[in-house]
Design a protein around this nucleic acid. Structure first.
Lengths: 356, 356
DNA sequence: CGTTAGCACTCTGCATATGAGAGTGCTAAT
DNA sequence: ATTAGCACTCTCATATGCAGAGTGCTAACG
């Protein structure tokens, strides 16, 4: 990294970067001295600019266009010239206040963190849920849903929860499932990935073996994933294109989507719905269209699938795609979450797992 | 809704809509007959166009610019002219195949559905997880984490799982927690929101009462929310702005974000990191900058917060914001997920709940 | 009466020219 | 080392002309 800059060069570089960030326009020597009342002439500044240019810290679009920072210029600025900046007290208080108002709920904290960052930074934000450095088993529960379907809930040290549906070879009463869970909970208490594998030999029962395999797989996946769920917010902040902005806002704003889905997919409305935005209702959807369909059984489990895009989209194709996927998921949900399943595998083992 | 169109008018309207969707350009009478080899002269088409224009189905930007569909035009087209279209067989097979390759995992299905829709429709997609029409209690578990902290896992009929951290007034041994859970599981088996309230009188123990209140609240929240988690994908499809597109892609692509976070936040790197995109590594971040920081205890629970935006962003302010939020969350996570808490309320009841 | 050919008209988009403004690099003087 | 001065370059906004596309209208046709 370059470090042969004089104080004056650094000053000028910092001013250029700051001005450019603020205004978005290239700035030249004259404007610079004028704007900041510098104690030197524009010619002097020009000489310095030429040097900064040669060092690759500044760039100009064309011969007479003023300078803008290069990537390297930004790097230098960030590393040595940003200076310490503290969020104003009232903003800090506001943020603190919001956090203390939420329930004791990790998910909410994460959402809030993303929202707060998006709001104060005016760009997009990213937050990941906390994860322990290595996954350790804490607790598991097997809950019979119906027929041979069993919901397995895994809790790991640190509070992460994973759920998985299993389809057993034959129905097993809840009492037995509870017994299995209780045994495995004892055996694997606080075990990490390799310890689960090590203690596998202590198990005789075939059902317990199968379940253990799944636990082991699941822990392997978590370890490999490395990062847990990612929360995002404020995407609309970095989209300035007028046309798309609206769509992005709608897309991001969960509550709005929810209301559209709820209203458009009322019980009586069947099949694929096309919501063309612009008119009275759906003002927010100006120039956007949603094609949505319900799946599942309305009085039991149901949800929605759909697409959102500019009004100018391929209707025929997209209506068909939405319908197809909705039907497909209806089938899956019916098969695995509502009726008894027909196939009798416990589940194909994803073969990228270590065999234990 | 207008329905006085002649067959020929419908034909012309459909052609205009289709052409506009395909090309994005306004189209006029001459081009129309030329392009589709219509059996009439452009003058005839012009007359029809004038009528469709008057009916408000078509619009023109200026006197001699060809027509484009109005919102109403799209509506008419969608309702009566789209025609049946079926996804080509190979696409259907492809989609089906992908679904049958995944594990028996609802979360994965939802993600896949969103991905598939985004891909085939070339616009953005939205999928909501299936929800039962009303929330019914299925199972709960209390897991002591440390000190007075307890993780409550709620399972509802249909397979939805909710987790919540509780901070009890005093430490309670796991055995007792298990007993409490088992009692409540019996009492509330298959109960819906109001039934939980009704059976509240059967409970004497104060701890059990508190827990029940939380369960009731949680079910209330779920009922009120109406729609469960929303999965989104393909946002990049509807952003055509060159500059922002890259940022949107990065933002959407979880795996890429994960790799940046993982690499930039290596154990030794402390404090706030500024990743300026463009150079060799982070090629994908061209013209984008990420400001990220780790929170939590590196060897215990940790995660990351950060912002993503154009390289031209307010560094001082944003670095400060990221640092502040990271510290705040560090504090919360440490307090509630690692060490014993200091305050001794079970949790403030959010007062918008019915009192039971 | 519906359809068509023809025509004048309008408006955009593109290319071209022009001048003001901004910024630069260089040289010579301080 | 700094600065004033100057010639030069390049963009941007504006004006102008022209080709192309499309329209509406009228009159003729079957």
């Amino acid at each position: 990294m370059i470090d042969s800059l004089t104080d004056r060069q650094e000053e000028i570089l910092a001013l250029i970067v700051r001005t450019y960030i603020e205004t978005g326009a290239a700035i030249g020597s004259k404007k610079l001295v004028q704007r900041y009342g510098l104690e030197m002439s524009s010619a002097t500044v020009r000489n310095e600019l030429a040097q900064l240019d040669e060092l690759g810290l500044l760039d100009q679009m064309h011969t007479s266009a003023g300078r803008i920072p290069t990537e390297l210029g930004y790097r230098y600025f960030v590393q040595r010239l940003v200076g310490e900046f503290e969020l104003p007290l009232n903003e800090r208080q506001m943020i603190r206040h919001q956090f203390h108002q939420t329930r004791l709920d990790l998910d909410q904290w994460m959402r809030l963190a993303a929202a707060v960052l998006a709001h104060t930074s005016q760009v997009a934000s990213i937050v990941t849920a906390p994860r322990p450095s290595s996954t350790r088993f804490r607790h598991m529960q097997l809950i019979s849903t119906q027929g041979r379907l069993v919901l397995m809930v895994l809790v790991f040290v640190g509070g992460e929860v994973q759920q998985q549906m299993l389809s057993l070879a034959e129905p097993v009463p809840q009492a037995q499932l509870t017994a299995v869970a209780s045994r495995l909970n004892q055996i694997f208490d606080n075990a990490n990935y390799s310890e689960v594998q090590a203690r596998f030999s202590q198990i005789d029962d075939s059902l317990e073996k199968d379940i253990t395999k799944l636990i082991h797989e699941s822990m392997g996946r978590m370890n490999r994933r490395g990062i847990s769920e990612i929360y995002r917010d404020g995407l609309a902040n970095i989209v300035d294109d007028r046309g798309v902005l609206q769509a992005v806002r709608v897309f991001e704003e969960g509550s709005f989507l929810a209301s559209v889905l709820a209203e458009a997919l009322e019980p009586e409305s069947n099949g694929v719905q096309v919501v063309i935005g612009g008119e009275g209702r759906w003002e927010e959807l100006k120039d956007c269209t949603m094609i949505i369909a319900r799946y599942g059984e309305i009085d039991q489990l149901s949800g929605a699938v759909g697409v959102l895009g500019p009004t100018r989209m391929a209707y025929g194709r997209n209506i068909s795609a939405v319908r197809y996927v909705a039907n497909l998921i209806s089938g899956l949900v019916n098969e695995y979450y509502i009726e008894a399943p027909i196939n009798d595998l416990i589940e194909e083992t994803t073969s990228d797992e270590v065999d234990i």
